[in-house]
Simulated scan of single mutants.
Amino acid sequence: MTAKATGHYTLKPDGLYLQFDRLFRAPIEEVWFSLTNPTAMQGWIGTYTGRPETGGVRFRMGFEGEEGEWQNVSILECAPPHRFLADSGPGPTGIRVFSHLREAGGMTTLTFGHRLPNPADAATMGPGWDYYLDRLMASHAGRPLPEWEQYYPALAEHYQELHVPEGARH
């Protein structure tokens, strides 16, 4: 698999997002399971502990190995199997992500976004999310996982050159 930069900017009422789309040949419930089940998540990004229905969990990225720090995640919205919105980390340095799923014709489209306080962050965040979302697709399909070295720094230039929409904070 050759890594491709797929992210683009979208401006939402709460800020500038780097947004990605992926298409799965699977029912929406299967894709939702891959995104939200702590065991399934281990195959592509990490895992969490706790009960999401309480509005919060503790999450740890798997890429960092056992040294990865547990992070508190606030679940702001969760509407299975269609969407979720979550925050991780404190204040302006915190991360906000969303996921929207749509199913049609036996295919499920995942739209994923990460809010960027600073557009310059796209040069590192973009390749990272392309990598993790490609891992999600490979894990879901039972294919070999991609290698990080194919993504960064190779895709950084694409994200450095993205046009920031009018009205976005700098």
Rank of each mutant, 00 (worst) to 15 (best):
R25W: 00
E53F: 13
H114T: 08
P153E: 05
T93Y: 13
T109V: 10
R96D: 04
A104D: 10
Q19N: 06
V57Y: 08
L110W: 03
Y9N: 05
P117Y: 06
H8G: 05
T93I: 12
P92C: 01
L23A: 05
M1R: 12
T47Y: 15
Q19E: 15
A5Y: 08
E29W: 01
W129M: 03
P127I: 03
A79T: 15
G65E: 07
L116N: 04
L136C: 05
T124M: 12
T47W: 14
G15C: 12
A156Y: 07
D130F: 03
W44K: 10
Y131C: 10
S34Y: 06
M61S: 15
G128L: 06
G7A: 10
K4V: 11
P52I: 11
V164D: 11
L18W: 10
Y152I: 10
E67F: 12
D121Y: 07
Y159D: 05
G62F: 05
F63A: 15
R25Q: 09
A168F: 08
Y17S: 06
Y9T: 02
L11K: 02
E103M: 04
L133K: 01
E149K: 14
A26Q: 08
T93P: 05
R25T: 12
F98V: 09
W32H: 07
A154Y: 01
W32S: 01
V73W: 12
Y48S: 01
I28A: 05
K4N: 13
H100C: 04
D21C: 01
E67I: 13
T47F: 14
Q42R: 15
G106A: 09
I75P: 02
G56W: 11
L101E: 02
V57A: 04
L35R: 02
I95T: 12
G43A: 14
A122Y: 01
W129E: 02
F33N: 02
E69M: 15
L23I: 11
G91M: 00
H140R: 04
W32K: 08
G126C: 08
S34H: 08
A5G: 12
G55C: 09
F24L: 00
L85K: 10
F112L: 02
L133P: 00
F98G: 03
G167R: 10
E161V: 07
R102D: 13
I45Q: 03
F59Q: 04
C78S: 14
L162E: 13
V97Y: 00
G142Q: 03
Y159L: 04
P52C: 07
G105F: 05
T49P: 09
